[in-house]
Write a protein that binds this DNA or RNA. Sequence first.
DNA 1: CTGTTAGCGCATTCAG
DNA 2: CTGAATGCGCTAACAG
Lengths: 348, 348
Amino acid sequence: MTKRIEREPAVPANPGESVTLIDVARVAGVAPMTVSRALHRPELVRSDTQKKVLDAVRATGYVPNMLAGGLASNRSKLVAILLPTIANSIFADTVQSLMDGLTSSGYQTLLGLTAYSTAREEALVEAILGRRPDGIVLAGTRHSDATVDRLSKAKIPVVEIWDLTDTPIDMVIGFSHEQVGTEVARHLFDKGYRKFGIVSVDDPRGLRRCESIKSELARLGVAEPAFEVLPAPATLQAGREGLGRILAASTPDIIVCSSDTLAQGVLAEAASRRLSVPHELAVMGFGDLSTAAHVYPALSTVRIDGITIGAKAAEALLARFAAVPRSEVVRTQVKIDTGFTIIDRQST
Amino acid sequence: MTKRIEREPAVPANPGESVTLIDVARVAGVAPMTVSRALHRPELVRSDTQKKVLDAVRATGYVPNMLAGGLASNRSKLVAILLPTIANSIFADTVQSLMDGLTSSGYQTLLGLTAYSTAREEALVEAILGRRPDGIVLAGTRHSDATVDRLSKAKIPVVEIWDLTDTPIDMVIGFSHEQVGTEVARHLFDKGYRKFGIVSVDDPRGLRRCESIKSELARLGVAEPAFEVLPAPATLQAGREGLGRILAASTPDIIVCSSDTLAQGVLAEAASRRLSVPHELAVMGFGDLSTAAHVYPALSTVRIDGITIGAKAAEALLARFAAVPRSEVVRTQVKIDTGFTIIDRQST
DNA sequence: CTGTTAGCGCATTCAG
DNA sequence: CTGAATGCGCTAACAG
């Protein structure tokens, strides 16, 4: 009965226990410190020593313990990301590009989901700071006082994304939701629409865009829009429901939605009611997710470049990490407006 | 927000440095170990001592260092999750419920994105094991030998989800993609369809479902389906493109898609070609995401209960964590088939 | 119920 | 270029 011969580690070290730097050092015939250097700063080690160490690493199956490393060096190589949710997330592109940037520099990602609750965010921030992350990325700029306080005192870079503020905790990369609302309103007004309906979920940033639309419309002398708010998360079904409610009470010529998903639901409902879009009813979304782009010729929207937001956030963090005197806490007040683009796909 | 007067910690501890357990102990007038206990095992501490400690924690602004705690206790309270991607992810529900379950027990989540690459998965597993997570969840059951080896030797629970296998690394919770394919094929055959088209992205599990459909159709004596594979990730645009290609060469009466997103793209393309669904062309998807559910009356699909998968995975992990002798590594061979449901929304 | 001792595995800091 | 001593902050194990 020949069992396949398993290549067991040449030197089993502490039987049953995990392999440590010391075990590797013993096998390689060098000091532990040399193993550490060979692994993290190979340029400081002669190449034959380097080779001995790498061989020993392979032979022992050593996996560095980053808890110990982080504790000793005070650098965890961990970045925390706090998002409201990942369900059909408008943040997917951003997270992907952010993680790509961080991963390729050896950083790992701790994920926290806040469900749009500042209380939950506060608890998560506290818990996560216990991991001593080297940096933290938050969606949004509205936080509880306690969160702001904790984050300000934590001596790590903080990036707030997908929004803008004049008083960032540290760095902020995003765009103005108020400006989105204002420009959407003006754009549609200029195109001649006068009877507005608005469908939103109760995401705080989405609501701010909606409020901004309403203010601008009021300023332009347009009648108060029909406004329906549905519970998050945005689903196609919520969009259908929203349009249904609006049509029960009014006959708008344009429906503005707080997200593309909602807008797609509105389109589905319009189709089932045999309303021709955009002729009888025009629809505007928000997000221009890559999954939806260019599919519904009648769907105008606001394009947000989530990839750039993620990439710039990664870049900003990495720049800070590289800055030499980590003790010297810098709050650079980086503020990047990534802007947005109104995409008009309606030929009214 | 007006700048409020910040309540500085009553006892600034080591000026500039971070507050440690020792600082808290000093302020509370107890031993460090008592602080640790008050925080983690309050039932072992007299309630007045407990109160002194909590006051001191608040006064100092202490945040426990979990790197140190993890190192000392050999329990990191970290669970790693490896997914292919989070873009319009079919895994969103699963991740959400998994994280809900873990978070409420004080576990935090390390996220890794593999992009459907086993090589990348291998690198991530190695890096992540360096954090000494208490458990790890992987999407899928197909991994490189090195990954399986590392994971088997790591003395932590491993849960493979969204698939099934007879040789799990440890625990597996999901359903059989082959079975999905077989049953979809039979279902559609029974409904009378004979001219099949299949649109998929090159996600390995999606492809396995498609292959299984093809085998079953062959077995049933149906003509070879038109088969179009597009690069991941699944987008509406990819669905449109896929249907376009298929119609260029054949005239199927049913299109089976590897995901709902793709199916929605197919529906969009069908609509733009004025094909009536399901009369002229029926469409079947996969996933039945909550965002899409019940919106396209003509879209049949396969419903997967991602929430249950996530919840059971969390439950399985927590059960293992609670098992007393952590040294005693158990590989329970938990194997849960969460099944799936074919949803027929076509009245052909 | 509380305190003491010891050390988790590694990197910093110096010395050679 | 390599090595030895020291401690990061915390908790296990035991003693009181």
